[in-house]
Design a protein around this nucleic acid. Sequence first.
DNA 1: CGTCTATTTGAATGTACTCAAAAGCGGTGG
DNA 2: CCACCGCTTTTGAGTACATTCAAATAGACG
Lengths: 194, 194
Amino acid sequence: MFEEILKHIEELIQLDKTETERFTSILVRKKLRKRQFLIQEGDLVSYEYFVAKGCLKAYEIDDNGDEHIIQFAKENWWISDFKAFFEEGKATLNIDCIEESVVYGIEKQELEKLFLDIPKFDRFFRIKLTSAFVALQNRILSSLDKSSSERYLDFLKAYPNLEQRIPNYMIANYLGVKPESLSRIRKNIARRES
Amino acid sequence: MFEEILKHIEELIQLDKTETERFTSILVRKKLRKRQFLIQEGDLVSYEYFVAKGCLKAYEIDDNGDEHIIQFAKENWWISDFKAFFEEGKATLNIDCIEESVVYGIEKQELEKLFLDIPKFDRFFRIKLTSAFVALQNRILSSLDKSSSERYLDFLKAYPNLEQRIPNYMIANYLGVKPESLSRIRKNIARRES
DNA sequence: CGTCTATTTGAATGTACTCAAAAGCGGTGG
DNA sequence: CCACCGCTTTTGAGTACATTCAAATAGACG
């Protein structure tokens, strides 16, 4: 049942049996079908989610009604509208499923209690948050100094094998280019490789 | 001596006299002149810094030798090469002073001890890290859906009054455009306003 | 098989870029 | 105090790359 998430946690901290049980007791398992919303703009966000199976995307809808994908999440990634989650406010992001997925939700109040009871989790999430922060910094840097075809190649490295599970127009959106442009970028890369 | 940083801390958590003294005892005050490095690529990074006075920039140097500014920090901002700081590794970023500045450094081991002694600080830095994470997400989103002139206006809002203290070519660099382009952007905005 | 969606291709347009040069500004030394 | 120097910003002209719009092709799914 909880193998995936426990394995993920135990890469950073060690848990004994009691702690494991305490932790899994607050997890809420959720099965989602393709295109189903996990979070929709305006929702109160009281959960953050670990992806055990499947693939989701988080995106914003701008004033023109256009979507902008800020994050993909596949197995072993965490996802939520973190701004809303941490500030206990309403979502400005939408999160929905690219594939049928299974996630474990952790409720904010339960998480706070967990931090008090088992401070190791504080450490766990601080490390996770830190590496997420650093990853975002790198993403900004790569948008400053790289061409779109380099950024596409970076994406392939950062999300290995994910390109087979996600339609190109979503990848284009994530990279901030138009599907037509990504198509030409891919054509160029293929030509160079042959 | 420590008014600025204490005021900053006490916006989020309350400290009694003992805690205040415990905290200030680990701070290392540093005066820096204009253009002086706080962190240089390759340095071991064992401090993070609070800016009490002045203004600094953090930047990466790419393979072509070009600089890319990832962050400015003025009074009440925190700055470091956070990747290197948290992983106790070597800096990939450079940080230097745009103006003569005063910063308070906190050493990593001392900070870890502080977390154990006064868990409120854990909370403080978790909140700070979270809002920094959210700010980076917003910055990525704005690079996805906004024109460079909108991003320039966003910058003016995000760093109020800072544009008077930073040369335009650095702002251009931060925004990921050329100084010539920023000049034209500013001309357009001025024309629209008149 | 037909329909709907995704991807590719083409042609014209636009925005930011490069390179080059001129103008503006600030500080220093004569 | 002014002239000069170095650095920053602006302007101009030509170029490169992604975009828009439109249409054709390819794939996925009932």
